[in-house]
Design a protein around this nucleic acid. Sequence first.
DNA 1: CATGAATGAGCTTTCATTCAT
DNA 2: CATGAATGAAAGCTCATTCAT
Lengths: 225, 225, 225, 225
Amino acid sequence: MSGVVRRKGVRERAAQATRDSLLRAAIRVFARHGLHGGSVDKIAKAAGSYDRMIYYYFGSKEGLFVAVLEEIYRRFNEAESKLELDLERPVDSLATVVRFVHEYYRKHPEFVTLLNSENLHRGRHIGKSLRAREYSSPAVGIIDRLLASGVTRGVFRAGVTGRDLYLLIAATGYFYQSNRFTLSAFLGENLEAPEAVAHWQSFVLDTVLRTLCADEPVCAAARVA
Amino acid sequence: MSGVVRRKGVRERAAQATRDSLLRAAIRVFARHGLHGGSVDKIAKAAGSYDRMIYYYFGSKEGLFVAVLEEIYRRFNEAESKLELDLERPVDSLATVVRFVHEYYRKHPEFVTLLNSENLHRGRHIGKSLRAREYSSPAVGIIDRLLASGVTRGVFRAGVTGRDLYLLIAATGYFYQSNRFTLSAFLGENLEAPEAVAHWQSFVLDTVLRTLCADEPVCAAARVA
Amino acid sequence: MSGVVRRKGVRERAAQATRDSLLRAAIRVFARHGLHGGSVDKIAKAAGSYDRMIYYYFGSKEGLFVAVLEEIYRRFNEAESKLELDLERPVDSLATVVRFVHEYYRKHPEFVTLLNSENLHRGRHIGKSLRAREYSSPAVGIIDRLLASGVTRGVFRAGVTGRDLYLLIAATGYFYQSNRFTLSAFLGENLEAPEAVAHWQSFVLDTVLRTLCADEPVCAAARVA
Amino acid sequence: MSGVVRRKGVRERAAQATRDSLLRAAIRVFARHGLHGGSVDKIAKAAGSYDRMIYYYFGSKEGLFVAVLEEIYRRFNEAESKLELDLERPVDSLATVVRFVHEYYRKHPEFVTLLNSENLHRGRHIGKSLRAREYSSPAVGIIDRLLASGVTRGVFRAGVTGRDLYLLIAATGYFYQSNRFTLSAFLGENLEAPEAVAHWQSFVLDTVLRTLCADEPVCAAARVA
DNA sequence: CATGAATGAGCTTTCATTCAT
DNA sequence: CATGAATGAAAGCTCATTCAT
């Protein structure tokens, strides 16, 4: 680190810090108040900076929102890339994936609300992003490989695509997190209670496995263990 | 005033019409622009009325939003109550429920975005609603009965709750609709294409059935049919 | 006046007063600072009101500017309509017209600078005005009649149009007023001095008459007198 | 630095180029949007430079505007100095002057709008210019000489000053160009049509000659030719 | 000589809301 | 019951300008 390149001036460093803190503040504020509710001034103040710096670094409020979307996708992909999956143990690995996805949504509520904001605006901003494509769907590929490995080993049945399975896992994790307030009112229970969360995750994992290996005693055994 | 109940006067009728058109406009505008993005003026104009009428009938913008939430829950329940389910044919009935929920979300995107708005605000408004309780969870009860019937008939395994199954069905339908824009970008395909929708519904139904009757040849047969 | 109609409420009266004072303030401020330089806030404060009332009454800053243009044209036409011209004495009447136009520009510098602003914006606003057409060119018609009368009486030569003569009179009066600051620097004299103004008006009148009746001793006589 | 004058270094040359392009961009932008409407940033971008360079070279926005005024006066004088006038043929020469002035305004609309801007600000900037004096009134001197020559030759009557005649020529050319948008709306015709322009110029020339040589058959003859 | 960063004041416009009639 | 007028706050954004390097 302290080797070759270095030589970033003090100012450049400070500038980067300003930009970063604006971006981080924007994630927080947009996540809490939505795109309309999160004002540039609120964000600037939360970052200890000035609203004009947002225009300096991001061009506009929309530009900032695009940067926010790119950043949260980047973070998600980064976290995902750290997942250690053993292709030789597909059932365990699948469990890991389910847990990872559900837990990521749970620990990063900003990810969920920001995507909701973007969908409220019909995907207008993600379409403007050049980097958006880069961040798409390694997840699906991972699950595809997992499924293939399971089929080879005779643990999973064929005919299920990684895409569908990914949607199933994401939907169950996302909806539970995103709608926890209305659901809690609707169901008359607190979905955020640790036992409730654990119960839901295991129900989903069970469902996932049942859909993959219905007739396989092998899988059933794995499931128990 | 004179007389007991009698008929509603012309004025009352007109008043009701004003209130209704404001409420309907609010559903449209809030659904499209969110709670912050939907201004009282925009709503009033969309209703062909005046913004002051909103204060007259609903007290405040928040009061209007509460009324909106109550109304969309009411509509959902009303639609649900028209479902004709034959408890003696639990598999078919379950398919009907899956189809109904998914299709309702699809045909009522405002329901989805409005609930997202409410969850963005952490369920603040639904908590203020007195009627909110009334509208909760008949759905869960219905599925409970369905499951019980299936278990009795030896079609479904025991151990699955209506609550979990409801969440599974809702999550898969809701997420698909709510996040269709970011998902379309993420997956590089159009989730709104009729084939894509049909495929997803049948995948979900298959998953639901597999989770209910994994080891049951009876159910498998039903599934095929 | 205190007869039939009346019955304008106090509020309506006050409202009209608010609108009027905003319009009057706008004329002053736009005339002094131009369209860009005159901010809505400055105008509102000059009118003792609030900037939002400008949007209430005029829709936008541009709408206000359109109203300003209509008003100054209206005032000019109103003043012009009070001119008393004796068609039987065409030379005197022409002198009256020259004096009126030059004096109007001199006493209403806002008329001149506002038209300059509008021309800077390539006539964009006057094109949006519905009333603009109404206010056009009675002046030209008046001069046409004057010329015809003079020709009939053998005082003026034929072949000069009211349009050209109007432009000549307007140009000489307008330019002198509009460019008096740069001209004063350029010529090294103060164009606003009363003698300078009087000299210019008589030079212009002389020029006008010479162009109308070069070869006519009759006219020359009139000119002297 | 070393040596007396020598050639300009590469850096000086580049600096001059930057300064020039800023000045040229400023002329364009100020002419189109006025002093208030033309922002330093807009100008810098139009020049392919940075707004800070404006402060480096011109000190302030006002300093830039002063430089702009000086430059357009310089250009006008330069063009004027190239006029070839034959004092022995005063009528033709006068026609040349009229044509030159009117055409200059027409082909350099920026000259007209910039002077309007300066007059809107009551000549504040031209007063600050040191060079401004240099650029004044050779035009008047030229016309003075022309008139004297004409009087000597018995073509023009005495008693008309170059200053008045210059104002007459300038006013008729300037007003026509400056107010062409509002006039076009006012008169209901397009003043920019080539025939309209030609007609106006010949009307003005005719007026000028009639005012100079009313009783002179000599001049009338010259006019015809 | 030129450039990235910063700053305070100002811009036009929209917000939700209340008052009087 | 409905409407015209008013109001304070805040929205997104641009302004001219200065500071460092």
